[in-house]
Amino acid sequence: MFWNDFHFDGLTLAYLTTGFAMTLLAVWNGRRTLRGQKQWPRFVCTALLFCTGYGLTIFSGELKTLVLGWEIMGIASFLLIIVHRDFTSGSSSGGISAKAFFIYRLGDVGLLLAMWASHHLWRENATLISCLLLATASMQSSQLPFASWLPQALENSTTASAILLATLTVQMGVFLLLRSYPFWEHLLSVRVLVALLGLAGAAMATAFARVQSSVKRRIAYVSMAHTGLIFIEVAAGFKNLALIHIAANAFLGAYRLLAPPLLAGMPVQEGGISDKKTWEDRLPKKLKYTLYMLYTKEWGLYSRLSKYLRS
C-alpha cells in the first residue's frame, strides 16, 4: 500500500524538528531581505519545493520513496543557489550552480546504482552497495573527494538560501548513512572507510576555514568539518550523539549566517591570516608558506573539478 512507503522513528523526528526550525529561519530572513523584490516569489516557491523533497526523504520507508525525495531536494537546492540570479546579466553564479548540479546528479547515480544492486546483488555484494551509499552521502555532504561545491555555493547565494544549504542539504548525507546503518553496521571495512573519510574531511575543512577571508566560505568549511566529525560518530555507532551534533551544527551555522561576523566570534582579518600562534609557526618558513598556499588554494580540489566543468 501507499502508506507502507513511509516510516516514522526517532531519526525522522530529529530531522523534522531541525528542518522545521531552519526553514522558519530561512523564510524569516528571506521575507526581511527579499520581500518586495522579484526574487521573493521565486524563493518562496523554491523553499516549498525543497520542503517537499526534504519531507519525502526523511519520511521514506524504502529506497524508491527516498530517491524521489532526494531528486526533488537536489533540484530545489540547485534552484536555491541561483534564486537571486539575474538571468539577463550573465551572472558568474551560473558556473558555480552548474558544478553543484553536476555533483548532485553524480550522487544520484550512486544512489540509483545502490537501489539496483539492492534488488539484484543484495547478498553477494553488501560492501559494494554500502560503498555506493557512502559515495552518495559524501557528495551530498560536501566531503572528500567532492569537498568544494558548498563554499562556492554559499558564497554565491543569498543568506536565506545559504541557511537551507548549509544546515539541511549538507546533513542529508548523514541522514542516508543513519537510515542505512543497519545494513552496513556489521561491515568493519565500511565503518573504517566512513571514519577515515570523516577524519580526512574534518582535518582539511578545518585547515581551509582558518585562511578564508569570506564569512560564508568560512561558515561552509566549519560546517563541513563538523559533518566530518559526525561521519566518525556514525561509524563508531554513536547515533544519538550524531543526532545531537547535527542539530547543534545546524543552529550554530544559522546563527553565524544571521549574526554579524564579530558577534558570531568569527573576526575577518585582511588576507584571512590570524595573529594567534599556531603549530605551523614551529615549522620551517618555507614549509609553513607551502602549507598556507595549499590551504588558500584548497589543495586544488575546486580547480580540478572546474577543469572538467567549464561553463
Rank of each mutant, 00 (worst) to 15 (best):
T46L: 08
L48Q: 11
G53A: 07
G55Y: 08
L56C: 13
T57W: 00
I58R: 03
S60G: 12
S60R: 02
G61C: 10
E62M: 08
L63K: 01
L63P: 01
L63V: 00
L63N: 01
K64D: 14
T65Q: 08
V67N: 08
V67M: 08
L68V: 06
G69S: 04
W70L: 05
E71L: 12
E71H: 05
G74R: 12
G74Q: 11
G74I: 08
A76F: 03
A76Y: 03
S77H: 13
S77Y: 11
F78G: 10
F78H: 12
L80A: 04
L80M: 09
L80K: 01
I82P: 01
V83P: 12
V83K: 09
D86A: 12
D86W: 05
F87L: 11
T88K: 11
T88F: 12
G90V: 12
G90M: 13
G90D: 12
S92P: 15
S93P: 07
G94M: 11
G94Q: 10
G95Q: 11
G95M: 07
G95V: 04
S97G: 14
S97C: 14
A98R: 10
A98Y: 12
K99T: 04
K99L: 13
K99P: 03
K99M: 08
K99F: 03
F102G: 02
F102D: 00
I103D: 02
I103Q: 01
I103F: 05
R105S: 14
R105G: 08
L106C: 03
G107P: 05
G107D: 10
G107N: 01
V109T: 13
V109Q: 08
G110S: 13
L111C: 02
L111A: 03
L111K: 00
L112Q: 06
L112P: 03
L113I: 09
A114V: 01
A114T: 04
A114H: 01
M115K: 00
M115W: 00
W116C: 13
W116K: 11
A117S: 15
A117T: 02
A117P: 03
H119Y: 10
H120N: 09
H120S: 13
L121M: 14
A126R: 15
L128G: 14
C131N: 07
C131T: 14
C131V: 11
L132Y: 06
L133T: 01
L133I: 13
L133R: 01
L134Y: 00
A135M: 13
T136L: 05
T136R: 01
A137I: 08
A137D: 04
S138T: 03
M139I: 15
Q140C: 07
Q140I: 02
Q140G: 02
S142T: 15
S142E: 13
S142L: 14
Q143C: 11
L144W: 04
P145N: 06
F146H: 07
A147G: 06
W149S: 07
L150A: 14
Q152H: 14
Q152R: 10
